[in-house]
């Protein structure tokens, strides 16, 4: 009876190398617990920022390079009360797209010149991880600019994600 009870708990003790099998059991149990514990860290260590990245470029003697704009003011269309950039000297800007709509407009003002950038996109909620939760990813469909500041623009990368690589080159 004692033997049966023992085997119920360590049901391999009748093996000649019973201690060895118990050790194997403990090791496999430890590996399993370790594999579970690896998912137990609830801290989010990833960036959750998703911005449309616009770089300013110019062409001199058929050579394209970065260029810096001075006194540049940027704000969302009909959001002139809340500036994204205020008289800044920058060679690129990070623009938040509106997650509630399929298009977002931005106003670029530099000295007396003003441009309006219109961005049309698809939206897709994306789970970064179970610790970090969801962010909104975007795929650019159409980007247009109207005004007298920039000459043209070119989409470099249509996916707007947490990678935050350059999406648009804007030429001056």
């Amino acid at each position: 009876m004692l033997r049966i009870k023992t085997r119920l708990f360590f049901h391999f003790t009748h093996f000649p190398a019973g201690k060895g099998w118990f050790l194997v059991f403990l090791i496999t149990l430890a590996v399993y617990c370790w594999s579970i514990s690896c998912t137990g860290d609830n801290a989010c260590k990833q960036s959750r920022d998703v911005f449309l990245m616009v770089s300013f470029r110019s062409t001199v003697h058929n050579t394209e390079h970065d260029t810096t704009l001075s006194y540049l003011t940027v704000y969302g269309l009909r959001r002139s009360d809340s500036l994204l950039y205020d008289s800044a000297q920058v060679n690129k800007v990070s623009l938040p797209l509106n997650p509630s709509t399929d298009s977002t407009g931005f106003v670029f003002a530099c000295h007396d010149a003003v441009d309006t950038l219109m961005v049309v996109y698809n939206r897709q909620p994306h789970l970064l991880s179970y610790e970090c939760g969801f962010v909104m990813y975007y795929r650019l469909i159409q980007v247009t600019i109207r005004g007298n500041l920039a000459d043209s623009l070119h989409i470099i990368q249509s996916d707007v994600t947490t990678d935050n690589g350059t999406n648009i080159h804007m030429y001056y």
Binding site: R79, S82, P99, P125, F134
Partner: peptide, 19 residues
């Protein structure tokens, strides 16, 4: 499925969606 996905407010208002 995922419900009550809350994209928090930043420059633009918060947005509630689902998969």
């Amino acid at each position: 499925q995922a419900e009550n996905i809350q994209i928090p407010a930043g420059y633009w208002p918060a947005f509630l969606t689902e998969i």
